[in-house]
């Protein structure tokens, strides 16, 4: 930590060695371990259909987590994602009441997500407000609108073809959602790791002032990231609504926490500036497998949430404890 300890490398480390020591490699070991423990502890785990079902535990959350990862790398956060799902789902449900077809329903879901994201982004970038407070506010506001519209009612009656997004299978046990998950993972990997836009996201997260002076339109990039996060929440809303087949205002309550946990577990620095998409992909699998394993062992959902909370804190605490331990010894 201190200056004296800082070590400036004079040669490139072996890429293979670096990859083996990376956070992603550690996560992969965890994922494999969880997989093995699960298959040993429950005879129902190693079944193609069960495993396929298990992926629904994380695919929708992971879609948001990809965009959230970029947002957190840039030094902002969006706690309103679960409420965006609620609002988008409510809008889709309302559209059904007006006789909208599947295409319109999906477009409305995506559009509402995009608008909500733009609203967050506008408040943060145009008015210069802190994203934590803004999105805590919109978290109440968006879900609040769903409650105003729906109250204690529910929307249903989605057309049969709409069910494909959450319940459809592309081939055998390969669901539409898992395919979408991998396509989006690839798209976000390219966006973050292979484009100028991605580099500017890292630059903003590390030093917004320096990024501004090097010609990056900081506010515009952040605005786009908020819109992207809203859009992905819209995509998740389409999948989730299609999977559940109904809309209640309490849909996806508490998801913001799980999405942020997934992002942090994936090795994204919560203070911004570093992290990778492959990390988030593996973290999604770890969380999905753990919840599925617990579910097979009849552990109630709320007890799993203890585990998720511990995971969120532990993932950040352990490396810090470790480096403190090393510093004290050295």
């Amino acid at each position: 930590m201190s200056l004296a300890e800082r070590h400036i490398p004079d040669r490139l480390t072996n890429p293979l060695q670096r990859a083996l020591k990376s956070w992603e490699a550690l996560l992969l070991v965890v994922a494999v371990t969880v997989f093995i423990i699960n298959s040993l502890s429950s005879p129902y785990f190693l079944d193609a259909w069960n495993l396929s079902d298990a992926t629904f535990n994380f695919t929708e959350k992971a879609m948001i987590a990809f965009a959230m990862a970029l947002l957190i790398i840039s030094g902002e956060i969006d706690l309103s994602v679960a409420s965006i799902i609620a609002l988008a789902s409510t809008a889709m449900g309302a559209a059904v009441q007006f006789g909208a077809g599947t295409t319109e329903i999906v477009l409305i879901g995506l559009l509402v997500g995009l608008i909500c994201g733009a609203f967050n982004g506008g408040l943060v970038t145009v008015l210069g407000l802190p994203s934590i407070v803004v999105t805590i506010g919109t978290m109440s506001l968006f879900r609040g609108i769903s409650y105003i519209v729906l109250g204690d009612q529910a929307y249903g009656g989605y057309p049969r073809s709409f069910a494909f997004f959450g319940q459809g299978y592309v081939w055998w046990v390969i669901s539409f959602e898992i395919v979408l998950f991998f396509v989006l993972a690839a798209a976000f990997w390219v966006l973050l790791h292979k484009t100028n836009f991605g580099r500017s996201v890292y630059a903003i997260g590390n030093n917004p002032t320096a990024a501004l002076f090097s010609g990056i339109r900081v506010q515009r990039v952040k605005f786009i990231l908020f819109m992207l996060t809203g859009l992905m929440a819209g995509v998740a809303a389409v999948c989730l609504t299609s999977r559940l087949g109904s809309t209640r205002p309490s849909i996806a309550v508490g998801w913001e926490l799980e999405v942020v946990t997934m992002v942090v577990l994936g090795g994204i620095n919560i203070l911004g500036g570093s992290g990778s998409i492959p990390g988030v992909v593996i973290a999604a699998f770890v969380m999905g497998m753990v919840t599925f394993g617990f579910g097979l062992l009849n552990v109630p959902g709320i007890v799993m949430s203890i585990f998720i909370g511990l995971l969120l804190i532990g993932v950040i605490a352990l490396p810090r404890l470790w480096s403190m331990f090393i510093a004290r010894r050295g």
């Binding site: 919560i270 949430s305 203890i306 909370g309 511990l310 404890l321």
Partner: peptide, 21 residues
């Protein structure tokens, strides 16, 4: 541990609720 307060309290929030259960 200098963990950001929002992460800490988001985590303890769910942990506390889970412990009640």
């Amino acid at each position: 541990l200098e963990i950001p307060p929002i992460v800490v309290t988001l985590g303890t929030m769910t942990i506390f609720r889970g412990i009640i259960f």
